[in-house]
């Protein structure tokens, strides 16, 4: 024993029982006011966005002879769309998604996932890349995804962090 445990007399059984009973009383409480707190938290969270970088999007213009329309999408929106797309893949759970941006241009994506035990990881990674590029094209527009015209598209780096049962 050290310090106060050594210097102070040990608690009696009576004292132990009293403190245990007291702690049980508090631990058994389910605070009614949490209902209000929970509602406020949900409302605040729905209205609260995290700091998020702008990402350049380009879509073909409907206007005759006009240039492409541009749009700025928050990184948060892109990541959310990717999360939903990847979570829909069988046996895949996304754990981290990061966009690589140069200025506001998407130049690549890093995706971390867990895969179900037994999955062929190369196939899983391929499915993740395909879903990622497809989603990026939907959200940012196909024109926004090319590093240059000769490239196949933005690189998607997939890391399988864990294999789960």
């Amino acid at each position: 024993m050290t310090g106060p445990e050594r210097d102070a007399p040990p608690l009696t059984t009576e004292e132990e029982d009293l403190l245990d009973r007291s702690a049980r009383l508090l631990a058994a409480e389910h605070p009614e006011e949490f209902i209000d707190v929970s509602a406020r938290v949900r409302s605040t969270v729905r209205a609260t966005t995290r700091r998020s970088r702008p990402v350049h999007a380009v879509f073909p213009s409907d206007a005759q002879g006009g240039g492409p329309d541009t749009l700025v999408v928050r990184e948060w929106v892109v990541v959310g769309a990717l999360r939903r797309a990847l979570a829909a893949l069988p046996g895949i759970t996304p754990t981290q998604i990061r966009l690589r941006l140069e200025a506001d241009r998407c130049r690549g994506v890093e995706v971390h996932v867990t895969a179900t035990y037994g999955a062929v990881l190369a196939d899983a990674a391929s499915a993740v890349r395909t879903a990622t590029r497809s989603t990026l094209a939907d959200v940012l527009g196909p024109e926004a995804l090319f590093v240059d015209r000769d490239a196949a598209g933005v690189p998607v780096d997939v890391t399988v962090d864990d294999v789960t049962a």
């Binding site: 508090l26 605070p31 949490f34 969270v45 959310g80 990717l82 999360r83 979570a87 996304p94 981290q96």
Partner: peptide, 28 residues
């Protein structure tokens, strides 16, 4: 992880799981 990627429902589950204990503690 899901909440960090924007899944608000996942975060609401976190709130429901741990909020009562946090509230109980804060009250004292």
């Amino acid at each position: 992880r899901a909440a960090a990627l924007g899944d608000r429902v996942a975060f609401e589950t976190v709130v429901d799981r741990h909020g009562p204990a946090l509230t109980r503690y804060a009250r004292r």
